[in-house]
């Protein structure tokens, strides 16, 4: 055997990618490029004024909303409905979810009903809600309440089903009371899933506010968007949609904040 000559070269690095780095500057840059393209496209007529208004027109729609004070009226009316509906839906959802998660009798009675109602689009119930709750605030709040209630119930009892049984065993082995186990083990263990469900129900609530305000709403972002749509005033339509998505962003941020505070034991 002849002597073999060896090539020495460094082992190539193959572990890049599939990791997110914090590139904070990218999203504003993308946003600004998007705005410029939008402006140029609508100005030179490449994008028809039927398809998109100029960015400046949307800005004017915002300005009008602001100076007339309508912004506060619309956002205020919607926020009231959103907060009330979401809070009540979440409150009852957590209570019912815990009951189903903890008591087999309740589960046997309620889980099938919840599963049956959950997929029904709440918007299809709109006419029924008008008959039950009238055309006032009650039916609007209830649409959001019902829309958030069922996903919450299912998320909560799913979360309880997923609580590590060995931790409950541990609690029992130390003779902890049922109430202590529920409060100190089951509840905190299901909290992450409950909080991440908040993101979903907050989005559902914002989607439903538009439907809720289809009915006899004089004020509200949903009513404003609906009005703009029926008037074919797409500048105002866009302004309303931007406000809705801002509401979504704010809700998301608040939930993120709550997660940071309540789940600081999770290294995130």
């Amino acid at each position: 055997m002849g002597k073999k000559k060896y090539d020495y070269k460094p082992v190539p690095f193959r572990g890049s990618g599939f990791q997110f780095k914090n590139n904070y500057w990218i999203s504003p840059v993308v946003f600004i490029i998007f705005l410029i393209l939008w402006h140029v496209g609508t100005t030179i007529g490449f994008i028809s004024n039927l398809v998109l208004p100029k960015p400046a027109e949307v800005l004017i729609a915002f300005h009008d909303l602001y100076v007339t004070g309508d912004l506060y009226l619309h956002v205020g009316a919607s926020l009231k409905r959103l907060i009330l509906g979401w809070t009540l839906g979440t409150f009852f959802g957590i209570i019912l979810g815990f009951s189903i998660g903890l008591f087999s009798l309740v589960r046997a009675g309620l889980a099938p009903i919840v599963a049956a109602i959950f997929p029904v689009p709440k918007i299809a119930l709109l006419p029924l809600f008008i008959i039950w709750f009238g055309i006032g605030e009650l039916s609007k709040v209830n649409i959001i309440l019902f829309g958030t209630l069922f996903p919450t119930i299912i998320a909560v009892y799913g979360a309880i089903d997923n609580v590590d049984r060995s931790l409950i065993r541990m609690g029992q082995s130390f003779n902890l009371s049922w109430f202590s186990i529920t409060r100190k083990i089951v509840f905190p263990a299901s909290l992450p899933a409950i909080l991440s469900n908040f993101r979903i129900t907050a989005a559902i609530a914002i989607i439903l506010i538009v439907a809720a305000e289809l009915i006899a709403a004089e004020k509200g972002i949903g009513a404003y968007v609906q009005m703009a749509g029926s008037l074919f005033a797409i500048d105002r339509l866009l302004a309303g949609i931007i406000i809705l998505s801002c509401l979504g962003l704010i809700a998301n941020w608040l939930i993120g904040f709550a997660e940071k505070k309540l789940l600081k034991w999770r290294n995130l």
Binding site: P127, L214, I215, A216, A217, E218, A223, Q226, M227
Partner: peptide
Amino acid sequence: LKPLQKVGV
């Protein structure tokens, strides 16, 4: 004014 979308409603 109560916008109700549909004549039936």
